[in-house]
Design a protein around this nucleic acid. Structure first.
Lengths: 210, 210
DNA sequence: GGCCGATATTCCACCGTGATGAATAAATTA
DNA sequence: TAATTTATTCATCACGGTGGAATATCGGCC
């Protein structure tokens, strides 16, 4: 158990031991479910070394996910083909990233504030827009609209990308207007009428935990 | 100092004391910067009462922000007018919420996982899409596209709304395709050609904080 | 080679955090 | 009044993180 204090002999690959242990534990138990002490135990090192080498648990998580992210999302293929199919290929790339890799396991197990936005967007905004629109494809259109709105919230406010944050509100509205218009536009009745498929959230608010 | 143990006489408005203290502190110092003990001290109650009455710090934050949110974002007016102007009114409502109220103060003090996505979306995805598109309005179109993509990431993966999460990947692509198409479509040269106003990120990566 | 200060890496003790459980007492209900 | 439910205090937990002591490596100098 008790090793001697001070720097050990040789140059043990402590950082690598930690990142490997962390990757495994983060994948198995998520961010919140993984404790610094557990990572340290798995790696066979003192828990203080995680702060020392990576600054913090989040710093370690950032290192682990950055690697995972760069390895997984290949933007190249999506940008290679004809311009007409670009939107589809981009969407495909994003969905593939989360569907095929273990990436979602790593992503934000849950950072508190999110619950508020999640419930509000889903139970209030989406439901009311769908109700306003009416018709068979109302939920589809509302879903698309909420995605755009959620994207605006995410990329400009919650987690501001510099490019988005620099814009004035008016610029944002000008740039996003056509997009949201399209999201809300009635869908042409496609020949394969597998339509609807979506259900409205039904209950207004189960009140959760009160 | 030492009050007697057990239930106090009368029915003191403990919950209200706590929410008021919490609102003030969250606004002044953000979520992370506000400790449960500080809220309890400000409210003049034992810190365990926060867990008791609200389940957790997050629960309390949820209550406080939900009120703030419902009070600030008036969805009604946006849904009142003509359908043609709906997208603009929705965008207006969202931007107003963050621009005019102190709402952004409440939002995510910073959950550093976000940094990964922020840098990646801004420096990689947005820049490369703009480069691919070319032309005077390339950055506008790329910005709109990144918003949609960021919205997809946010509402489906990072912070999954139940309605979005229930969908298959194929459904997501089908629903979002027209929206992303519109985001990427070249903008009609508006009569007032006050020149796009947007600049490309210019430097590829200022390296920030390393 | 041999010493020596600067720097790097480790262990340990400890801090403040959010949260829980036992003890306690008032309020409410039967 | 007796039983039950609700509201509070206090002790204590595991958590993430920090600072200091200990011990190694590294670079320069003789």
């Amino acid at each position: 158990m008790n090793k001697l204090r001070g720097r050990p002999r040789g140059n043990p690959p402590t950082k690598d031991l930690i990142t490997e242990a962390a990757r495994g534990l983060f994948l198995r138990h998520g961010y919140r479910g993984t404790t610094v002490r557990a990572i340290a135990a798995e790696a066979g090192v003192d828990s203080a070394l995680i702060s020392y080498h990576f600054g913090s648990k989040q710093g370690l998580f950032g290192v682990v996910t950055q690697v995972q992210c760069a390895r997984s999302l290949a933007l190249g293929p999506a940008l290679a083909g004809d311009p007409e199919g670009l939107p589809d290929r981009l969407l495909q790339a994003v969905t593939d990233l989360w569907d095929d890799t273990g990436f979602n396991r790593l992503a934000v197990q849950n950072e508190d504030v999110m619950r508020v936005f999640r419930e509000y967007l889903d139970q209030e905004v989406l439901a009311r827009i769908a109700e306003y629109l009416g018709g068979p494809d109302a939920t589809d259109r509302a879903t698309a609209a909420v995605t755009v709105i959620g994207g605006l919230i995410f990329t400009r406010y919650l987690n501001p990308l510099p490019t988005l944050a620099r814009l004035s509100s008016a610029d944002v509205r000008r740039i996003l207007a056509p997009t949201l218009h399209a999201a809300l536009r009635p869908r042409p009745r496609s020949r394969s009428h597998l339509h609807h498929g979506l259900r409205r959230p039904a209950r207004p608010a189960p009140a959760g935990r009160g």
